[in-house]
Simulated scan of single mutants.
Amino acid sequence: MASVLDALWEDRDVRFDITPQQMKTRPGEALIDCLDSIEDTKGNNGDRGRLLVTNLRVIWHSLALPRVNLSVGYNCIINITTRTANSKLRGQTEALYILTKSNNTRFEFIFTNVVPGSPRLFTSVIAVHRAYETSKMYRDLKLRGALIQNKQLRLLPQEQVYDKINGVWNLSSDQGNLGTFFITNVRIVWHANMNEIFNVSIPYLQIRSIRIRDSKFGLALVIESSQQTGGYVLGFKIDPTDKLQDAVKEINSLHKVYSANPIFGVEYEMEEKPQPLEELTVEQPPDDVEIEPDEHTDAFTVSFTSYEYFTKIIIYSPSFCSKLVCRYVFCGTKMYI
């Protein structure tokens, strides 16, 4: 049996200039937000691009040359901060700094929103990364965790218990420990009956193999975890043999289903997902800002009074914020043209 982890690289690697196929979402990966007019200020300063935020990584690519791109997995991120950066498109402006480590090499990325007045660059990436960090039980093997409450498994969101098997011996010591087995749609959990804190949670994502092998205690269920988690070999004895074989068949079946469509546990939804800028069509009402034609007109000819008007609307009318910001951006784009 091959682990799902063997093919998973999206959240565990930093890659540059990936292929169009690698830019596509893998099974279980979902696109959460799409931000246009984002500049990779450190690597491609002055190049307008698009930032895709998924539940496993952030992807940036140049709009002019899509083959110029990068993919940053959340598991590689060491720190996220906001600081001032110098952008060729925006000048001195607040930017998103992401410090990462991949294959013992550190990378720093600076992303700047070319469109003024939109905080989504910061809120989307930071919030989704936080959701990733707080959902590690879906993806990491855990020993002696707070897994059991009142003899019942503390379920994760999206988790369902498919089977509960009593009288399962953990063979990690010479005498063994009698406990209870939980089989769910995302992991296998065992805990000792005499001491609930003596437990283990094994996500399907980290399972390398599941088989029945002979041991000094007789036939046993043996689960080998991935090398990333230390390559644990965990043995469990389930009597009678028919019950053991049924358990192995059920675990293999659930592991196969999980492999086809993994549940990574990262849950985050945008309240309102705006369309990309190029797809927006904006009708300008009579009361909107008017731009007087002038031979010296450029992107900065909008009056201070008009800018203040938009700022107040954005601050005090959140329900109209997205639409008004887009309208202001649209006018700005027109002025550049």
Rank of each mutant, 00 (worst) to 15 (best):
Leu5Cys: 07
Asp11Ala: 13
Arg12His: 13
Phe16Ile: 09
Ile18Tyr: 00
Thr19His: 08
Gly28Lys: 09
Ala30Leu: 12
Ala30Arg: 14
Asp33Tyr: 07
Leu35Trp: 01
Leu35Ser: 03
Asp36Ser: 09
Lys42Asn: 11
Gly49Ser: 06
Arg50Phe: 04
Arg50His: 05
Leu56Asp: 02
Leu56Phe: 06
Trp60Val: 02
Leu63Cys: 02
Val72Gly: 04
Gly73Ser: 10
Cys76Thr: 15
Cys76Glu: 08
Asn79Thr: 13
Thr81His: 05
Arg83His: 07
Lys88Cys: 04
Tyr97Glu: 12
Tyr97Cys: 14
Thr100Ile: 10
Thr100Ala: 15
Phe111Gly: 08
Val114Met: 08
Ser118Arg: 12
Glu133Asp: 13
Arg139Lys: 10
Leu141Trp: 00
Ala146Arg: 05
Asn150Ser: 13
Lys151Glu: 04
Val168His: 06
Ser172Asp: 04
Gly176Ser: 01
Phe181Leu: 10
Asn185Phe: 08
Val186Gly: 00
Val186Phe: 02
Asn193Met: 03
Asn193Tyr: 04
Asn193Leu: 13
Met194Arg: 01
Asn199Ile: 07
Asn199Ser: 08
Pro203Trp: 05
Arg208Thr: 06
Ile212Ser: 10
Arg213Pro: 00
Leu219Ala: 12
Leu221Tyr: 01
Val222His: 02
Tyr232Cys: 00
Val233Asp: 01
Leu234Thr: 01
Phe236Lys: 00
Asp239Pro: 00
Pro240Thr: 09
Asp242His: 12
Lys249Cys: 05
His255Asp: 03
Val257Met: 13
Glu283His: 11
Gln284Ile: 15
Val289Met: 08
Val289Arg: 05
Glu290Ala: 11
Glu295Arg: 13
Thr301Asn: 10
Ile314Lys: 14
Ser319Lys: 15
Phe320Tyr: 14
Arg327Ile: 06
Val329Glu: 10
Thr333His: 13
Ile337Glu: 15
